[in-house]
Design a binder for these strands. Structure first.
Lengths: 324, 324
DNA sequence: CTCCAATGCGCACATCTGAGCAGCGATCCG
DNA sequence: CGGATCGCTGCTCAGATGTGCGCATTGGAG
């Protein structure tokens, strides 16, 4: 006991000395061995033990480290191609909080897009989050041929969707032409949706959206202030019914339940835009979720495999990891 | 500016990710490169930058780290073979503080001795510090042939020197025989010292001490409670004179000034024990200094080259480094 | 006293990593 | 528009490091 104590005592001193020579003075293990009278193997094993026994601490101290961990965890857990997580300090409260989150997520989402630099046709959705993304796109972040909308983008309500601004910004920053989908996201009946899809202009746009290899879209929630639900084509009764069916949010105007299944087939048939199957077929499909309460729809989108790249805030990332 | 900002932002994320893969998951740079889509060179350079920019922090966190730094500094600055520094928390005050220091230094000194494991003859001095060392020696810390005293060890005062206990403990723990030097450390006249040195028993002991390859001795200070000065052979007047000459302490009964020179030759000739020249000739000469005010004599001993291994407390080490 | 397990050591070998260097594209000037 | 320069990339090559293994020493059990 006593022998162990004093032996490990002297050992610790030696480990500390070796660790300092190695990590502070950057001597090679060979040199350290010569200096303290050990073989380089002994020095190497001592260094192992020093790390093992926490005599040496190696840590990644950057504030973003936590976010990167979330990203890596999301990728590993759900097999995502990529994930970017933005830091949204809990300081801001109330409605402004979601604005802050949107901006923060938009920033990292734009970084991600610029890094991927998709070419050809890029299909986009609309909404406040997408608007925040579009506004932050720097000139020349990639070279694309055409920007096209993924789903219907006109509104009946007084608040404008700014859908055009989004498409135009994507086009302007990439040198691409653009094509809008001049129809509501959700119409009154399935028949009307079918009829609209037969309209040449709409059909062309939908074909282009289907052909696009890249899709960038927001993940919405069925809140009263949601642009989809507030657009005037879904009655309050229908909204309540939708929630009863377990809808946790929408992807390109199609509402999903927690499992990632279409929440209400009847309503879904009234949507104007590409199908989730078409979306899933794209090699790059970037979902952007920002703000509180986005966890369920983010997880649903992941389960439905309609996203293979996720951009979200840290709260959403944590929720997804905790519940997925 | 904005471009720089966003670029370095994404770069930082990448550095953090790469650093985590490297330092936490212990992937090779090659594997990391494959995973994140970079060449191993880019990964290596990213890791360099991550350390450079303090994204990764590597530190030796053990409480002894500071002490080891002092040890290394002592060795480097003064060309010592070894130095061991004990931690003496400033908590204890007054007279007890020196007792604590002695115990702490004795512990590390014993570790050092056990590690060196000197063989043959070991010459030792006496004093409270040496007593603390002796008492902590574990059985079998080394195998020696003979233990012998370096200098006179009888006292005229009422307080016993415990010199015999020291020698006996060294002998008992090493399986060695022992030989005492039955004379005072300092006598009344130089002539008496010479005469004593001619006595067969004393001469034999001195010869053995000279022949020893190893010496272990305390570094004393000229305080009123010093066993040397209190032994009764140095008058209060002489003590005052000694201090006037700049004596900062003694090594085996010989007082040195701050430069490491004999402080008062006339007094020195009255000492009974081996000379500093004989001491300097030994390949292993361990000086032990514990307690406040020991800095000057420690430094003097180093300058005089009578020690090539120093064991002391952290306060003494700091003083020596600050003033040497 | 003998045998055996356990530990620690150093070596050969494979892998990993760092340093210097040439190529190459972008950028900036003249 | 041509040329110089700079930054970045990947390469070669040598040095540094990790790994598995055989050998020796040690400590203990029988």
């Amino acid at each position: 006991m006593l022998a162990v104590q004093r032996r490990s005592n002297a050992d610790v001193r030696l480990m500390v000395r070796v660790a300092q020579l190695y990590y502070r003075l950057h001597l090679s293990q060979q040199e350290i061995g010569e200096r303290v009278g050990l073989s380089r193997f002994q020095v190497g094993r001592l260094l192992d033990r020093a790390v093992e026994e926490s005599i040496v601490r190696i840590e990644v101290v950057h504030p973003d480290a936590r976010l990167v961990e979330l990203e890596d965890a999301l990728m590993a857990r759900f097999g995502l191609d990529a994930a970017v997580v933005a830091d949204v300090p809990a300081a801001t409260q109330g409605l402004a909080a979601d604005d802050v989150a949107r901006d923060a997520v938009a920033e990292v989402a734009v970084d991600l897009l610029a890094q991927r630099a998709p070419v050809g046709t890029i299909a986009v959705s609309w909404g406040r989050t997408m608007l925040a993304v579009a506004r932050r796109l720097p000139m020349g972040w990639t070279k694309a041929d055409e920007i096209v909308q993924l789903n219907g983008a006109t509104s009946r309500s007084e608040q404008p969707t700014r859908a055009n601004e989004i498409v135009e910004r994507f086009a302007a920053t990439t040198g691409a032409s653009f094509r809008t989908l001049a129809a509501p996201a959700i119409v009154g009946t399935a028949e009307l949706s079918t009829a609209l899809a037969g309209d040449p202009a709409v059909e062309e746009a939908l074909d282009a959206a289907r052909a696009a290899h890249t899709a960038v879209f927001g993940l919405g929630i069925p809140a009263p202030d949601s642009p989809h639900l507030g657009s005037g084509f879904v009655t309050p009764d229908e909204q309540a019914r939708l929630r009863e069916k377990g809808a946790v949010g929408d992807v390109v105007g199609r509402f999903l339940d927690a499992q990632g299944e279409i929440a209400w087939r009847k309503l879904d048939r009234r949507a104007v835009g590409i199908s989730l199957e078409d979306l899933r077929a794209k090699p790059l499909r970037v979902g952007v979720a920002a703000g509180t309460g986005r966890g369920p729809i983010a997880l649903a989108a992941i389960r439905a495999a309609v996203v293979n790249v996720l951009a979200c805030d840290d709260g959403t990332a944590s929720w997804v990891l905790a519940h997925g």
